[in-house]
Every structure is written in structure tokens, then in C-alpha cells.
Design a protein around this nucleic acid. Structure first.
Length: 290
DNA sequence: TACGCGTGGGT
DNA sequence: TACCCAAGCGT
């Protein structure tokens, strides 16, 4: 069976791709890597301004590696999941020390860096170095679930079958495989969205198994709903926000005022310290890590 | 394998 | 209004 959806999706991408700075001709592998870390679980619109500021301040891994980790946490701003900033800083130091300051191009070397898993390693190898990898993120998983499997959503946890399917679809030629990877991801981000998909704009609607099935509703276990209010995560976020916005070290009472429950507050502070996001100074004050 | 980990915009 | 969810990773 000859596949007829590769070409339409490549053509659709050529005509509809967003003009994102990490896709610009002058974008460096470092810029691609920074974007991928920031985009983990965070929308493009919120990443854009932080990415620009970050790249202006730290245009190379060595530039970031020369700074204290706390500066990375501060510059991370309100992107969320600030441990990513810490790991990106660690990666910058590893790249500077182990790779001569150049972002490695192989999936294996990328995977060895902190904060880089299977998806991000494949994405950087593909987007920055035009290597041939299955780039399987939440967008691509959803597109393949609909187009080929005929269901509205993929399973909660990624399966080996999904990986095998994605790899089987890769065009043999690496540059074309790289174009395919970014194109199918973009289709998921702009058209084949989680809610209210824009099927009228889909270049492969006539081949979509889910559409041909009559777009049956998702039939499976409830998809996780994450509560946030009142959690340790919210408490950690408030504590760290105080430190980000402070010029220097702060007294303990300045942290205490952000959360009423002292037990939860102390627990959150302890885990922030354990994570390396907060530095307890000898004089009793607290600061972003140096 | 399932869970913890931030934040804010869309529906 | 309350969810839902957004280019995941590490444990």
C-alpha cells in the first residue's frame, strides 16, 4: 500500500508553518535546544519572549555555563517547572566541558544530557541537525491516533506500538524525514488539536481513519485531571516567585507570608532546597542558588 | 508504571 | 465557571 499522506502534509507545512525564531535560517542548535526545553509542557506564546531574552543574554552554552544556576532560574520567569531551568544550566556546563561548547548532534549524546529525554533528543537531532528520527510528542501521537488508528486520543502512556508506527512512517532520506517530523507536529499543533480540531483545514481529511469512522468520541479511562490549588506545587511556585523577584537573599518571614499552612510551607521549602532551586544561607536567609 | 512537577490561556 | 491541556522528564 502506497502512503499518500506524506506529500500533502509536507505541502501543507510549506504553506502554513508558523514563523518561529528557532526555525529561522540563522537559528543555532543551542537555540533549538533551548526552545525544546522551554516548550516541554509550555505553550509557544509564553515561550517566545523568554526565549528571545535568554538567547540575547546567553547566545552560547558557554555563556550560560559561566553564570550561577540561580540566574537561569531567575531568567526562567513564570514558564513553570523551574527544574527545567536548572537542568538546562547543567546541560550547558556539560556541553561546555564534554563537547567543546558545541551542542552534540547524535541522539545518544543528547540523551545523556540532564533534562533531555527520548523526545527532546530526537527533536534536537532532527530539527537542528536534520537527522532521521521519529519525533513523537503529544501532537504527533494525536495525529497518528486519528489518521491511522482511528481514535480520538492516543493512550495516556506512550506504547512501543506507537514508536514502531512512527518509525515505520519515516521517509528514508534524512532531510525529508526531518521535514516530515516538523510538519506532522505542526499539523497537530495547528489543525489536529486536542479539542475542536479544524478538520476543514486538514490536508489529509479524506484519509483520516477517525474522520472516516464518523469521529467517534474518546472511549477509554478518564484522562488525568490535574488539580493545582492547594497543592505543594502551588506553594513551591509562590515561594520561588518571591526569590525570583528579590534582588538578593530574603529573610524567612518574607517566604512565610505566601502560604498559611506552616506544615505544607516547610515541606515545600525543604523540597525546593533538595531540588537545588533554593539555597539556605548560613545566616538563615534564603536565595536562588549560586 | 504512575506520579510529582508550574503556570496561564482557551473553551 | 471549572475544567482541560500545553513540543516531557526523572524517579
Amino acid at each position: 500500500m502506497k502512503t499518500t499522506y506524506i506529500e500533502p502534509i509536507l505541502d501543507w507545512y510549506h504553506a502554513n508553518a508558523r514563523d518561529l525564531p528557532w526555525r529561522a535560517p540563522g537559528a543555532t542548535p543551542w537555540g533549538v535546544l533551548v526552545s525544546e526545553i522551554m516548550l516541554q509542557q509550555t505553550p509557544v506564546s509564553r515561550v517566545l519572549p523568554v526565549w528571545h531574552a535568554w538567547m540575547a543574554r546567553w547566545p552560547t552554552p558557554a555563556a550560560l555555563a559561566a553564570e550561577p544556576s540561580g540566574e537561569a532560574v531567575r531568567a526562567w520567569g513564570r514558564l513553570g517547572y523551574p527544574r527545567r531551568a536548572l537542568r538546562l544550566h547543567e546541560s550547558a556546563r556539560a556541553i561546555t566541558e564534554r563537547h567543546g561548547g558545541e551542542v552534540p548532534s547524535s541522539h545518544e549524546d543528547l540523551l545523556a544530557l540532564p533534562g533531555i529525554g527520548a523526545y527532546t533528543a530526537a527533536a534536537v537531532a532532527s530539527f537542528a541537525f536534520r537527522r532521521r528520527h521519529a519525533v513523537l510528542d503529544t501532537n504527533v501521537r494525536r495525529v497518528l491516533a486519528r489518521l491511522l488508528t482511528g481514535v480520538e486520543y492516543p493512550p495516556k502512556a506512550q506504547t512501543k506500538a506507537e514508536v514502531a508506527l512512527a518509525e515505520s512512517l519515516l521517509p528514508p532520506d534524512p532531510p525529508t524525514a526531518a521535514r516530515w517530523a516538523v510538519a506532522v507536529m505542526e499539523l497537530g499543533a495547528l489543525v489536529c488539536t486536542a479539542r475542536s480540531p479544524r478538520c476543514v483545514d486538514c490536508p489529509v481529511l479524506d484519509q483520516c481513519a477517525w474522520h472516516l469512522n464518523g469521529r467517534p468520541a474518546y472511549d477509554g479511562p478518564p484522562r488525568r485531571g490535574q488539580t493545582y490549588a492547594g497543592t505543594d506545587r502551588q506553594c513551591r511556585g509562590r515561594i520561588l516567585a518571591v526569590l525570583r523577584e528579590a534582588e538578593g537573599p530574603v529573610e524567612k518571614p518574607a517566604l512565610d507570608v505566601v502560604w498559611a499552612d506552616p506544615v505544607q510551607r516547610e515541606r515545600a521549602l525543604d523540597t525546593l532546597v533538595a531540588d537545588g532551586l533554593v539555597d539556605p544561607l548560613q545566616d538563615g536567609r534564603y536565595a536562588l542558588p549560586s
